[in-house]
């Protein structure tokens, strides 16, 4: 079980993550959505103990009941890959170009699990089969530049699964892939999480992928969790104006709109841009872009309101309406 309590990450005066609190247990599938700069990646890195050196951390982070807030790099090394694993956005860049993917995959098997060369090799073969890489024997011998983007992401998933982690954090795992491949990778992650009874944090700004992959959702903006609840319920009836904005900005499934690069266009219809870390508003961080903004919003932080039994949202407008 992994638990964050009022966890913050700040750089100087700017808070990249503000008082995040949540609990995740084996089998949970949690989606984290928001635009770039919303703190999603910082959340993932914090769970790996990999926030940048310059960052100041505060609050509690417990992994299996153990407080990790003051943990040393060595303590974290013992947890990474074995307890918490992570895959990143750019499969093209995330594999060492000078090593055969088989070598890359065998390294943690031998180092962390102490397998022999041949046992590691056999395990790597199984992992490749598990993540759906065809002809694993030949693929293990190849270099990253010889594989397609989707295959590389599968290799990275296999690498993340190598030491049977209890939590897999997938940071924008499908963003760099084309739509069909993205869909298959998303389904693969769900299948693996269910099959292994592993917790999954699926970080994305692709709401369709999150809806497909997760049961719970957290919407982040400006380093804060602004809304959370069951994925279906939140996406069907968003309570926070930012979540509504995200949904409205989504390209409609009918139009099948694609940008010139063949990917789905970025979310652009929320007016304004995500504020920079150093000039976040003092009050609600969505103030300035919010369509239902009240006079109080810019100055005072929004309270967290229960929208339903299992749902919360942080918004002044919800208070003045007297609930949902």
């Amino acid at each position: 079980m992994i638990e964050m309590q009022s966890f913050s990450v700040s750089f100087g005066a700017g808070e990249a993550l503000r008082e995040a609190s949540f609990v995740i247990t084996p089998g949970d599938r949690l989606g984290v959505v928001g635009e770039s700069g919303s703190g999603k990646t910082m959340l993932g890195l914090s769970l790996m103990g990999m926030a940048p050196d310059a960052a100041k951390l505060s609050g509690k982070l417990r992994i299996d009941g153990r407080d990790m807030s003051g943990a040393s790099e060595r303590d974290w090394q013992a947890l990474r890959a074995r307890k918490v694993a992570m895959i990143f956005q750019e499969p093209m860049a995330a594999l060492n170009p000078l090593r055969r993917v088989g070598e890359t995959l065998c390294e943690p098997l031998r180092q962390h699990l102490g397998l022999s060369r041949s046992a590691a090799r056999a395990r790597a073969f199984e992992l490749f089969e598990e993540v759906g890489i065809p002809d694993p024997e030949a693929r293990l011998e190849q270099f990253p530049h010889q594989l397609s983007g989707g295959q590389r992401q599968r290799v990275l998933i296999a690498l993340a699964l190598a030491c049977d982690p209890e939590l897999l954090i997938a940071d924008e795992p499908t963003t760099a892939l084309d739509a069909n491949v993205a869909l298959r990778i998303t389904d693969l992650l769900v299948r693996l999480a269910k099959h292994r009874n592993m917790a999954l944090i699926f970080v994305s700004h692709d709401l369709a992928a999150v809806a497909r992959a997760t049961a719970e959702i957290m919407v982040m903006y400006g380093g804060e969790i602004v809304e959370r609840g069951p994925t279906r319920a939140v996406l069907d009836a968003p309570a926070h104006p930012y979540t509504r904005g995200l949904l409205e900005a989504r390209p409609s499934p009918q139009s099948k709109a694609r940008g010139p690069d063949g990917k789905r266009p970025r979310l652009t219809t929320i007016p304004g841009v995500v504020p920079q870390l150093h000039d976040l508003p003092a009050g609600c961080r969505f103030s300035g872009r919010c369509p239902v903004e009240l006079p109080v919003c810019a100055a005072v932080r929004a309270p967290v309101c229960a929208v339903a039994a299992d749902r919360t949202a942080a918004c002044h407008a919800l208070v003045s309406e007297g609930g949902a």
Binding site: M48, M50, E73, R74, Q77, A78, L79, R80, A81, R82, A85, M86, F88, E90, A93, A94, L95, N96, P97, E107, P108, Q111, H112, L156, L159, A160, A162, C163
Partner: peptide, 22 residues
């Protein structure tokens, strides 16, 4: 600064090992 170095760290290897091998 490359992504694959972050991958290696995320795989739980020590700074020293990442530095010399990756």
């Amino acid at each position: 600064r490359q992504d694959y170095v972050r991958t290696a760290r995320a795989t739980g290897f020590s700074h020293r090992r990442v530095l010399w091998l990756h």
